[in-house]
Design a protein around this nucleic acid. Structure first.
Lengths: 217, 217
DNA sequence: TCAACAGCGCTTGTATGCAAGAAAAACCGT
DNA sequence: ACGGTTTTTCTTGCATACAAGCGCTGTTGA
């Protein structure tokens, strides 16, 4: 793989994991020096990230890590909810034993992390769980889109899980999702995933509050 | 706007409109000579198109216009159907008079093009119609995703409309979609759009047949 | 005659150099 | 002293130069 591709992954990981703060500036010279390459592959990496929406570029003013306005963020979560609902619907219709086992295993992972009250670990298991649902849709393109959007929203999801009592609720919702998919209940699976992902009411308030706190830091 | 951005749009348009055939090679030197710029902005444009999936790049082997396998193409249409269904659901829930008027106007445009049996014109009006539905979802992000995917599938949609008797059927489906949205029937609007967009049964056969014909040419 | 290998050429990938534009700092006038 | 303007500097955006793979072709051997 080329330098540019490696750098793209590396920078993407740093954004998703939160090492690079939202809104922070991505200086080409600085990144080039840090990774020991010239500006060219850095530029190529940043342009690709810009095309996927993870960073924003203003002409002649460089790139910053995307920090969408709350209303757009809400729209992104709504879109995520719809896409995950679609994955759930398809998964419920097409479930094969292999995917059923994967779902149960992912659910068990979440349960274990929850039992230890380990937020970081739950965060990781939650990621696995959703990935399994995407794959169970047996639609490679939709699964890809879902995963890409999931990663893009990862920094905010991390904020959300900090809210007290969100973990047990999240786990209960996961159980309902698996139950619906395994039962072949298309509408139920879609609705369970939609309401699991969507951000509204108290959760929206929590999210915005978390954003402000993280911006202030 | 920068050269690279202009070139990206230009090349994207040529792909979407079919001027650049599916699978054709995109030689950097050739494009640079054609547009009178150096390879640098061409590369940047191609990389951005690669990130959105419109072109594929193999390391050390340049870029070609994406020509997905039939099974992936089918998955893309399925994903498109789900996303459009989501737009329709949200539109039915949120419809404002302004969007209602836009929908009726777009429908009238389709009817007019249909009356003149002008495939090219219907193709254009069809694009407008779907765009209006996306916007009526009042979710800027989802609308963006939908539009981007729509453009990516444009070359294949063009093939589809060539099938005899597809135009009147398409128009009838548009009417049902508008009726459901205006009536505030969320489930109905979603289902109408899903079945309008999805490719299955005879339509899948037609699509694959069209692909083969266009590849042979 | 066919297959395999080596050399060559062409293309991509990266580095560097240069110009234009925007932010920041300094200077001048009031 | 403060506001506006100018200049300076720093960054991006493009061009050019260079290096490194991969494919192709020509040749050679069986």
């Amino acid at each position: 793989m080329s330098h540019a591709q490696r750098l793209r992954q590396r920078i993407e990981d740093e954004i998703v994991s939160g090492e690079l703060a939202l809104g922070s500036r991505l200086d080409e010279n600085q990144l080039a020096a840090r990774f020991g390459v010239s500006r060219t592959p850095i530029r190529e990496a940043l342009l690709q990230l810009a095309a996927t929406g993870l960073v924003q570029t203003k002409p002649r003013r460089g790139a910053i890590v995307s920090a969408p306005e709350p209303h757009l963020l809400l729209a992104m979560f709504e879109a995520m909810a719809e896409i995950e609902a679609a994955c759930g619907r398809l998964a419920a219709r097409r479930l094969v034993p292999e995917d059923a086992e994967a779902l149960q295993a992912a659910l068990a992972g979440c349960t274990a992390a929850m039992a230890e009250a380990d937020t970081e670990s739950y965060y990781a298991e939650n990621y696995v769980f959703h990935t399994v649902v995407y794959r169970a849709s047996r639609n490679a393109f939709l699964a890809d889109q879902a995963l890409s959007l999931h990663r893009r929203l990862a920094p905010y999801r991390r904020l959300q899980l900090r809210v007290r009592q969100r973990l047990p609720q999240s786990l209960a919702e996961h159980e309902a999702i698996v139950a619906a998919i395994v039962a072949g209940n298309e509408a139920g699976a879609a609705e369970a995933l939609r309401s699991h992902v969507i951000v509204q009411g108290d959760r929206f308030t929590d999210l915005v509050a978390g954003l402000r706190a993280s911006n202030a830091a």
